[in-house]
Amino acid sequence: ATNIVGKVKWYNSTKNFGFIEQDNGGKDVFVHKSAVDAAGLHSLEEGQDVIFDLEEKQGKAYAVNLRIK
């Protein structure tokens, strides 16, 4: 899925991951530091509006192509 809109539920910059809540009511999506770095960001803030693509690997969904809304 592409261009999914959501809000950062939480992001832990020490542990380098967090979760994004989808605006469409879907399951929360894992986001890793690598996606944050690829977006040219240092971190994510709770409540921040983002747009992302959804990829699945080994049955787990995660956010890629992250951008600030």
Rank of each mutant, 00 (worst) to 15 (best):
D23P: 12
L44I: 06
F52A: 03
I68D: 09
N12D: 08
N12C: 06
I4V: 09
Q48E: 11
L41W: 14
L44F: 14
G25M: 12
K7A: 12
A63W: 00
E21G: 15
E21A: 12
A38R: 12
L66K: 00
G6T: 01
L44T: 01
Y62T: 08
N16A: 15
K27T: 14
Q22G: 11
D49P: 11
K33P: 02
A39I: 07
K15Q: 13
A38P: 03
N3Q: 12
N24Y: 15
K57M: 10
V64M: 08
L54E: 06
L44R: 01
E56P: 05
G6I: 01
D37P: 02
D37H: 10
V5K: 10
I68T: 09
F52K: 00
N12H: 14
G47L: 05
G18S: 01
E55R: 13
Q58T: 07
W10G: 02
E21S: 11
Q22D: 06
E55T: 12
D28P: 07
D53Q: 04
L66Q: 00
N24S: 07
V29R: 06
K69M: 05
T2H: 08
E55V: 15
G25Q: 15
V29K: 02
V64I: 10
Y11H: 01
Y11E: 01
A61V: 14
F17E: 02
H32A: 05
N16Y: 14
A35H: 08
I4K: 09
F52R: 00
K60W: 11
Q48C: 05
N16E: 10
I51V: 10
I20T: 01
A61M: 12
D23R: 10
T14K: 14
K60A: 11
G59D: 12
Q22E: 08
L41P: 03
Y11W: 09
V36K: 04
K15I: 14
A1W: 07
G40W: 05
D23A: 14
V8Y: 01
S43L: 11
K27L: 13
N16D: 05
K69Y: 06
Y62R: 13
A63S: 05
Q48H: 06
R67S: 11
V50L: 14
F30I: 04
L54H: 08
A38E: 11
N24F: 12
W10V: 05
I4F: 06
I51K: 08
G59R: 13
E55W: 13
L54K: 15
G26R: 15
F30H: 02
V31Q: 00
V8C: 03
E21Y: 15
L54W: 06
G18W: 02
K57S: 08
N12Y: 10
D28R: 04
L54D: 01
E46N: 08
N16I: 02
S43Y: 12
E56M: 08
W10R: 05
K15N: 14
D49V: 14
G26T: 14
E55K: 09
R67D: 05
K7W: 08
D37N: 09
N24K: 13
K69N: 11
Q58G: 08
G25F: 13
Q58E: 09
H42S: 15
I4P: 02
N24C: 05
Q22N: 14
L41T: 06
A1V: 13
V31L: 11
F52M: 04
E45C: 06
S34C: 04
Y62S: 11
K57V: 11
Q48N: 06
V5M: 15
T14P: 13
V31F: 14
D23N: 09
E21I: 13
A63Q: 00
E55P: 02
H32K: 03
A38I: 14
N16M: 14
F52G: 01
D28F: 06
V31P: 00
G40P: 02
K7C: 03
V5R: 14
Y11A: 01
L54A: 06
N16L: 11
A39C: 03
G59H: 11
G40V: 04
D23S: 10
G47K: 15
E45R: 08
V64S: 09
K57Q: 13
V50F: 05
Y62M: 07
L66R: 00
I20R: 00
L41A: 07
D28M: 14
K33S: 10
Y62F: 13
F30G: 02
K27G: 09
S43M: 14
Q22T: 14
T2S: 09
S43V: 15
S34Y: 13
R67I: 10
L41D: 03
K9E: 01
K15A: 13
K33V: 09
E55G: 10
T2I: 14
K33T: 05
E56R: 10
G25P: 09
E21Q: 11
V31A: 03
V5D: 08
N12S: 09
S34K: 12
F19K: 03
I4N: 08
N24L: 07
E56D: 13
A35E: 11
E45I: 12
I20K: 00
A61F: 15
D49T: 12
D23M: 13
V8P: 01
I68W: 14
D53F: 03
H32V: 03
I51N: 15
A63V: 10
Q48K: 14
G6R: 01
L54G: 02
N12P: 02
K60N: 10
Q22S: 07
K7D: 01
I68Q: 14
L44Y: 02
F17S: 03
N3F: 06
A1R: 06
F52H: 02
K69S: 04
L66S: 00
A38D: 08
N3M: 06
G26K: 11
L44Q: 01
K7R: 10
R67G: 05
D49N: 12
H32R: 03
A63Y: 00
F17Q: 03
T14G: 08
F30K: 02
G18E: 00
N65W: 03
K33W: 10
F19T: 02
V36H: 02
A35N: 05
N65G: 06
V36W: 03
Q58M: 11
V36C: 04
A38H: 10
Q22H: 13
S13G: 09
D37A: 10
E45T: 11
G6N: 01
D49I: 12
G47Q: 10
N16P: 02
S34Q: 12
G59I: 06
G18P: 00
G18F: 03
G47H: 15
G26E: 14
F52D: 00
I51P: 00
D53W: 04
N16R: 11
E21F: 07
A35K: 06
V36Y: 03
D23Q: 13
G25N: 10
L54R: 15
D49E: 07
F52P: 00
N24T: 14
V36Q: 02
R67E: 07
V8A: 02
G47S: 13
G59N: 15
D23E: 09
E21H: 15
Y11F: 11
L41G: 09
D53V: 03
D49W: 11
V8H: 00
A38C: 04
F17W: 07
F17A: 02
G59M: 12
A1T: 12
Y62C: 04
V29I: 10
A63L: 03
Q22I: 08
N65F: 15
F17Y: 08
D28Y: 06
K57F: 11
G18M: 02
K9L: 13
G40H: 11
S13W: 12
E55Y: 14
F19M: 06
F19E: 02
